[in-house]
Computed example of a mutant assay.
Amino acid sequence: MGSKKSFLRYLLRQLVLVMLAFPLLAVGSSAEAAWQPELLVGLQKGAASVQLSSDSPLVIRDVASGKILAKKPARDSFSVTFSQGAFLVAGKKVMAGTAGIDFVVEDARQLAAQVSRIDGKAYRGAVRLLPGETGFTVINRVTTEEYLKGVVPEEMPPEWNMEAVKAQAIAARSFALSHRKRHSKDGYDLCATTHCQQYQGIRAERARSSEAIKATYGEVLTFQGRPIEALFHTDSGGMTENSEDVWGSRIPYLRSVKELHAKSYPWDKNISAEQFTAVLAKHGKTIGTLKSITLPPISFGKASAGRTSAGRAAQVRFAGTKGTAVVSGNDLRNWFGLKSTLFEMTYKGNVVMIHGYGWGHGLGLSQWGAKALADEKEYKYPAILAHYYQGTERKKLY
């Protein structure tokens, strides 16, 4: 390595690289206090006004400069509006830069303990308001573990087997950290909907899911040293999917695996032939009066014409009086609001009958599948995660 000085310089560079990759925040003062990443979660866009309060004394800080613009006592409820390029806080003008303003505890190390109320709804962490052309964006500035408390019970029932809930906690943590800056053009990391992860703040929290989060504190799944895109869904229907059969690109750790139960979570949807062909025509697939549908039966583990190896519909052929059309299973799912692409289609009595299984895209962890592995095979959470995310490593990031 060379001299002692050069070695120290090398260590310093590595520390800087880590800090740049994961901007960290000191939180709390309890025995479990640690450094952990901070997340910006978008809650509202285009807001005209918002009512704020906090259990702690707050400072109003300009995000860009860090300058304290004003202070607010604890439990003081006040309104914020935005007009002519300036925020009005309780009727008083607060000038801030384009990066917005934070309503935050003065000692950033206490961010994890802060509780903010936004229009009466409680969230852990601070509030950031970002000015826009029409109204402003409301953002929750929150540490990762406190964010997860409002996510995990929304994504998986907390009363399920604790090993499945722990697996869900690690998947949610890995997903969040791998997707930081996903909404960077909007000024935050993640949204609070299913596009990212469902997040409802303190009102969603449950004791058992918080217990699972605490038991896996800081644990993430990594691939080649980085947190993975730990996708998950409700139920695979019998076999999860390869990433390239959904997205078109191969991700090494999102491989198709079989479940304990085949053809789980059955569902049905019937659509009149007229309505069906009208929707096809709306999307540029004009076939006239429907005559036939070509899609082979579901078979798990072996690809066939029109189906992936996981059994999902890859392409379906429709023949009509004005021609034929081939439509992908993913398009059919989106156009007709189907629960999954694991379906069979029949045409009888002027009705298109769709019978399917599972719920979701089929990538990564199947929540009902994880529950079955925990309940019936007594899998612990590391084994559940290894089943669904192949070739990954489980590491304690902080």
Rank of each mutant, 00 (worst) to 15 (best):
M239R: 13
G100T: 11
Y147K: 06
S209D: 00
E219R: 13
M162P: 03
R226F: 08
T294K: 09
G2R: 03
K214I: 10
V50P: 13
A21Q: 14
E32C: 04
L40G: 11
V16T: 03
A314R: 12
R9D: 04
M162K: 09
A33W: 03
K285C: 13
K377Q: 15
G125I: 03
R180L: 12
S340G: 12
S292F: 04
Q168K: 10
S272I: 05
R208C: 04
H195S: 10
V327I: 15
V115W: 04
A305H: 13
F175G: 11
G97L: 06
E241P: 00
E106H: 14
S236E: 06
T194L: 12
N330S: 12
T240D: 05
L52P: 14
H195A: 15
P266L: 08
A313R: 02
R206S: 06
P382V: 10
K380R: 15
V327M: 09
S30W: 04
A230L: 02
G150M: 07
A192W: 05
I118W: 00
K380H: 14
K166P: 02
V94F: 03
E274D: 10
G288I: 02
S256D: 00
I354G: 08
Q198G: 15
V127S: 09
G356T: 08
V142L: 04
H283Q: 07
I213T: 06
I68P: 10
L254K: 01
A212Y: 00
R9Y: 02
S256P: 00
Q198H: 04
L260R: 06
